[in-house]
Design a protein around this nucleic acid. Structure first.
Lengths: 247, 247
DNA sequence: AGGGTACTTTGACCGAAATCAAATGGAAAC
DNA sequence: GTTTCCATTTGATTTCGGTCAAAGTACCCT
């Protein structure tokens, strides 16, 4: 499949992540300047985009698909430390080497910028630096919320937390509001879920079965999930049940 | 004790965190502008500086002492999600309400700015925004490293990880290099350590005793720690033993 | 010096999740 | 259609850290 076949846009104005990505605040002229240095890259599911420790010569935005940030210990234990969804930013201006592996969890398209020109633009274009700061602060909040999940929640609560996060961003992508049952496909294998949650894949499987038995969720297939009652799921996650607003 | 008695500086030029804080990149004139809107606040150990959910009308830097960011679930389970050391930044430009409790772990002095004037200065003073982005990215890295600790490390490795982090930043504060034994005081109670590590205080105590028995550490008193061999400690932490460079 | 309080250690026991192992299911390949 | 290869589920057992309980220790305050 060619790049053209995957997109129906070539200019930033038609880009699906135009209003959420690092370029969100840019004016028309700034966008044109960005267009001059951007290029697209596609990755297949499972492909490693960046290896931990490698020099990074580009930064960019996830346009479609899902990528994950993963840390690995010498003995092979791995922890996923970030889930990158469309519009999320990859890379770190002002740093030479990648601190973790970036892996394409699904087929993925990225909008890339060579690092040096992008860093130059950050200096001349406050809109970009401002937006990047906001996005980084959001990511920091998400990371800290995840620390609570990893440190203090039970296996069942961890699964419910992950499901509610995926459900929420799915709802926000599809503008589908928060009423009635929510239906989505899990973009992660049981093993990837385990790596995100600090569990083993067996425990993930058992807890999903338990949530199904207790009718917190319904499974049409192993990956296709229905959530009949979002409030119930958030109770199971141990979250404030009334904090169910979209972001 | 008056404020004056705690400081020997009143202007930014003599500030102990001048070269590390959010103002690090500022020129003399920018610093003067900051001086006009800054004020100092002291807090006693145990005092809550900001309650989760409350409106934040100031931001600032930790000048001396230690603060912690803490998340709490309805049933009382708590997870520390950040440890703020001198020069670290508190607050979030562009956000109204605090996402977590900020608590003074020790007696603490902060250099504060009212939020609105600070946000205005961020727009007119790129040096501040740039520095804040770098600091936020560093914090994000630290949070993600901590996710690996919380998700995948054993209790013993967690304790060793915490000790090595405190030892490292202590060494970096005192410019004391990384050779020979390292000596420092634990700024946290066993309970605070437990909250940081996602453990119970009993487990923290047991693992510290075990590390002492195995001579990975020596305790002159319950809080005063000597690390005879930093490499050994980092092995126990499950970290790359050769990555022991300072930051 | 004594008594209170907060912090810490240690012990006995229990349980949630990990580990080890095998079976099942489902989709692509032959 | 059936073989192969993964992903997933389920079962049996073990283990690490949690829970409950009781001392021990250090510091502060009269």
């Amino acid at each position: 499949m060619t790049l053209k076949a995957q997109f129906d846009h070539t200019n930033c104005g038609e880009c699906p992540i135009r209003h959420r990505a690092v370029c969100a605040h840019c004016e028309r002229d700034e966008l044109e300047e960005l267009e001059n240095i951007k290029y697209y890259r596609s990755f297949e599911a499972g492909q490693t985009i960046i290896w931990s420790g490698d020099p990074m010569n580009f930064v960019g935005s996830v346009v479609s698909g899902i990528a994950s940030l993963t840390q690995t210990m010498e003995d092979g234990r791995t922890q996923m430390v970030g889930l990158l969804l469309p519009s999320d930013f990859v890379g770190r201006p002002g740093r030479e080497n990648a601190p973790y592996d970036v892996v394409a969890t699904t087929d993925l398209v990225m909008c890339c910028f060579r690092k040096k020109p992008f860093e130059d633009m950050m200096v001349t274009t406050p809109h970009i630096a401002q937006r990047l700061l906001q996005m980084t602060l959001d990511e920091l909040d998400a990371a800290r919320e995840w620390m609570l999940v990893l440190g203090r929640k039970t296996a069942r609560e961890k699964i419910a937390s992950l499901l509610s996060i995926i459900a929420r961003r799915d709802a926000s992508l599809h503008q589908s509001g928060m009423v009635g049952p929510i239906v989505f496909d899990l973009p992660l294998t049981r093993e990837a879920m385990a790596d995100y949650l600090g569990l083993t894949l067996e425990t993930v499987s058992r807890q999903i079965s338990a949530l199904k038995k207790d009718q917190v969720i319904t499974l049409e297939s192993k990956r296709h999930v229905t959530i009949p009652d979002m409030g119930r799921l958030m109770e199971e996650a141990g979250d404030d049940t009334d904090g169910g607003f979209l972001v």
